[in-house]
């Protein structure tokens, strides 16, 4: 069967770079909490978390190297959850 999926081996180095980026963003988000950005505090924290999760998905979870169809599925699932949250807030925002 199709064994060609596993021919790609990710270098150790790549993982170390990703980890450094992830740690960096973690410390930035902790540091930003100390500064009062008003309503943008949550936005910054969530934005950094999203970038971090994209990195984890793409490199650690191999989405970048896998068939495209996995990436599409993951994106759709996140989109679905986002839509559900938005529609739920149709109620709470305007109540």
């Amino acid at each position: 069967m199709e064994k060609d999926q596993h021919t790609h081996i990710v270098k150790y180095r790549t993982y170390v770079y990703v980890l450094i980026a992830l740690l960096f963003m973690t410390f930035v988000s902790v540091a930003v909490t100390g500064i009062d950005l008003g309503p943008y505090t949550v936005t910054t924290a969530l934005l950094l978390a999203s970038i971090k999760s994209v990195l984890v998905l793409l490199i650690f979870m191999h989405l970048k190297f896998d068939k495209k169809f996995y990436g599409i599925m993951v994106a759709s699932v996140f989109l679905l959850l986002a839509c559900v949250i938005v529609i739920t807030f149709m109620d709470y925002l305007y109540r």
Partner: peptide, 11 residues
């Protein structure tokens, strides 16, 4: 159930 008007229309 007491949802907001906007939610009612949307749904």
């Amino acid at each position: 159930s007491g949802m907001s008007g906007t939610a009612l229309y949307t749904f």
